[in-house]
Amino acid sequence: MSEGHKNRFLRPETLSAVGILVVAAGFLIPTTDLRSISALLPAAMLIGLIILSLLLLLSDQRKAAAGEAPEKVTNSPKRVIGAFCLIVAYAVASDLIGFYISTVIAVPTVAYVFGFRNPLGLAIATAIVVGSIWLIFDFGMSQDFPTGRLWQN
């Protein structure tokens, strides 16, 4: 992958600066409904963010013009996205089908997918994790964890 034909507007810093700009400007709209004293601090911060992200944008574009390569964000974007999606899926599953079932599935799955493939190790680790959580939080402290919204109705 040569850096030469990379679009200078797709540099990560440029993208994030534009992102901050858009989000901050978006949040600025509801501040108009607030009393002026109430809006003072949030508006100041949002305007600050807009100005700062413009500065960031300028300096990154200047670097691009000077031919500096952008800093590499990740070596394996697929793994990062995969990891994040698995974590989100685990949270959603806890919400929908319950914490314990999801955890029993998620701990070995995540570890397996990302390279720890020893079946005995996986089984023992899962048992210890789920067991001690149940023992400490549920049994010991009668904490409730999500039971699964799907089963409730």
């Binding site: 998620a106 701990v107 990302f114 720890f116 680790a125």
Partner: peptide
């Protein structure tokens, strides 16, 4: 092992 540690921290 790192993947295992990662998944435990997630929980």
């Amino acid at each position: 092992p790192r993947p295992l540690l990662g998944s435990i921290i997630i929980v």
